[in-house]
């Protein structure tokens, strides 16, 4: 989409229409998601129920909407927004178009943290699971830093050590799972990524952590463009690059960890969505982050709808859907090369 030219002959700063369209898309996809299922609910009644008007859903249908489908769609939206945004931020901070939460070991670390929490307590830990995940994730990122030894100087060596740390964390996680076979099934299904656990408690806690992280990221996003330059250029433009990187990595890791703790490992969202948005808008982090969050949310709500309905009444893990859609998309993108490197 080429932006309209203004009198100076330059494309405008940011076309707010694109953000508005993404918001509308998310709303539409959300209504679609809560309406479809083994029992279909009418759009009109859903809207009436949500806005508290007369003539809304009643009885079982109302319970279905409020207690099952709505929290699930909201959780999908939160997780999608978190993964897409942190993917975009990791790509900027590590100056690597292929960086995503999974390559840095953050997600695997979060998975390990959550597994330790689940296998050791078995209790419901909605409020604490994100914290365990975050500790696991931030430790994984820190270890990746120290192995690569060069912090931000060489993004590629950091990614490589991130892959190593991620594999190690996954190995430990698998070991823990096998030892605690009583909790094997819940952990296993959680790893494949699923949103069936969604209830208002999970949604509330995830929303708190993810919205904090996203607020921080969108606040600093204006300066994030400076991190795409060399440190000297960033400094000359008034930025303290290392401080900004630390803030951005911590916030992105919090978002990733919360997403992982709420829904397991869901791949490809962090790479596909940012590239898609950049390719369409021709704009980078600074102006695109909110749109990336909204599109990421829509993408995952849609993927979850597929996960629920394609094999109905059985459910597919949502990670299968995102990979099923994401991998071919990604290959097309790679082949075109336009969106990835340019």
């Amino acid at each position: 989409m080429r932006a309209k030219r203004s009198e100076s002959g330059l494309p405008p700063i940011w076309n707010w229409k694109i953000t508005a369209i993404s918001l509308a898309l998310l709303f539409f996809v959300g209504i679609l998601a809560v309406s479809f299922g083994p029992v279909s609910l009418s759009f009109q009644k859903i809207l009436r129920t949500l806005f508290g008007l007369d003539g809304g859903l009643t009885g079982q249908e109302r319970t279905l909407l409020i207690d099952l489908r709505l929290p699930r769609a909201l959780l999908a939206a939160l997780v999608g927004a978190a993964l897409a945004t942190s993917g975009a931020v990791y790509q900027t901070v590590f100056r690597n178009p292929l960086a995503d939460p999974y390559l840095l070991g953050a997600a695997a670390g979060a998975g390990l943290g959550a597994t330790i929490a689940i296998t050791n307590t078995g209790a419901n830990l909605y409020s604490l699971l994100p914290i365990f995940s975050f500790i696991g994730a931030i430790l994984a990122v820190l270890v990746s830093f120290f192995i690569s030894g060069k912090f931000f100087a060489e993004p590629n060596s950091l990614l490589l050590s991130g892959i190593a740390v991620g594999s190690f964390a996954t190995a430990v996680q698998t070991y823990l799972q096998q030892r605690n076979s009583s909790s094997l099934r819940p952990v296993y299904s959680w790893i494949l990524g699923e949103l069936t656990v969604a209830n208002w408690q999970v949604v509330t806690w995830s929303a708190i952590y993810i919205l904090i992280a996203l607020t921080i990221l969108i606040t600093v996003s204006k300066q994030l463009d400076g991190l795409m330059l060399t440190d000297e250029e960033a400094y000359s433009l008034g930025i303290n690059p290392n401080k900004l990187r630390i803030i951005a990595v911590i916030a992105a890791t919090l978002a990733t960890a919360t997403a992982v703790s709420a829904s397991g490992l869901i791949g490809f969202v962090g790479i596909v969505v940012p590239h898609l948005v950049r390719g369409i808008t021709h704009r980078v982090t600074n102006r695109g982050l909110l749109t990336i969050a909204l599109v990421g949310a829509s993408f995952l709500v849609l993927a979850d709808l597929g996960a629920r309905t394609l094999l109905s009444p059985a459910e597919l893990p949502i990670g299968v859907i995102t990979a099923f859609v994401g991998a071919p998309f990604f290959l097309v993108v790679l082949r075109k090369k336009r969106l990835v490197t340019k």
Partner: peptide, 20 residues
């Protein structure tokens, strides 16, 4: 500051780059 080996930003247009 004009570096010898500039970093090439992902998905950034020329006008945005100069606008920085």
């Amino acid at each position: 500051f004009v570096p010898q080996h500039p970093q090439i930003p992902i998905g950034m247009s020329v006008s945005e780059y100069v606008m920085l």
